[in-house]
Simulated scan of single mutants.
Amino acid sequence: MTAILYSFRRCPYAMRARMALIVSGQQVELREILLRDKPDSMLALSPKGTVPVLALPGGEVIDESLDIMRWALRLHDPEGWLEGDDAALIAANDGSFKQHLDRYKYAARYGSDPLEHRAAGMAWLGELEAHLKSRAFLCGGRRTLADMAIFPFVRQFAAADQAWFDAQAVPRVQTWLRGLIGSALFDRAMTRRAAWQSGDAAVFL
């Protein structure tokens, strides 16, 4: 049997899980879902209903993206991503930055002031700019887990108003982000797939 990943292409949590699974060389069946029509088989595995969800052949279910990344990389880590597992930096991204990102990008949904949250998000990107002052990536001279866990969210922040973001004084963050978005790994992870339906032939990541 093969592991099965339930995923949604545009979700940054799912993006980072897919990239780790790809780089580690895991054979995984990919089931692209629609968030408005989540399959019962996924909800049976993880009732919280968020992606990604990885179902392993032995019955174990991993439904947190960082746990999926670390699981895959512990099996095979050809680029040494785990050497850059900066838990504090990733927690800041997944915590306060993600909150500001949501309230900037989806201000109508949250009833928030988008400019206030954009400014708060930029303050954190200033911290990333400082991290990149003397190195190309967040933990050194090559991409590692911290980069791959964080950049999908920075990409989403930038895309909310790309022209505005491009005009900001964070040149190292902008260069770092462009390089990761332009990588062959990200291109493969973002391959478009039709939404999975029960009975479909298996599609692999």
Rank of each mutant, 00 (worst) to 15 (best):
R155W: 08
A136Q: 15
S24L: 06
A136F: 03
A3V: 02
M122I: 08
E129V: 10
E129M: 07
T144V: 04
I62R: 03
L125V: 08
M69D: 00
L89M: 13
L34I: 02
M1E: 13
D77R: 04
P52I: 09
R155S: 13
E29P: 01
Y104I: 01
A146T: 15
D200S: 05
G59Q: 13
A119L: 05
L73C: 06
R10T: 13
Q26H: 04
A120D: 12
L21V: 05
D102L: 12
Q162V: 04
V53N: 06
M15K: 07
L43G: 02
P78G: 09
T50R: 14
V28N: 05
A44V: 11
R178Q: 15
L5D: 00
V51E: 00
H131I: 01
A163C: 03
E64A: 04
F151T: 06
S41L: 12
L128D: 02
L205S: 06
A3Q: 11
W196G: 07
K105Q: 05
G140Q: 09
A3C: 00
G182I: 03
M122N: 04
L101D: 13
I90Y: 03
Q99D: 11
Y110D: 06
T144C: 11
I90R: 06
R16K: 13
L82H: 03
G25T: 05
F8R: 08
D147M: 08
C11A: 15
Q197N: 15
V170W: 01
I150Y: 01
T175M: 07
D67M: 14
K48W: 12
G140D: 05
A3I: 06
L180H: 00
Y6M: 07
Y110P: 03
L177D: 03
W81C: 05
A202R: 12
L30S: 09
R155L: 14
A169N: 14
T2I: 10
T144F: 04
P47L: 05
D85M: 01
G179S: 06
A17Q: 14
V51S: 02
K38D: 08
A184Q: 11
M148A: 07
A17E: 11
A149I: 10
E64C: 02
A201P: 01
E32F: 08
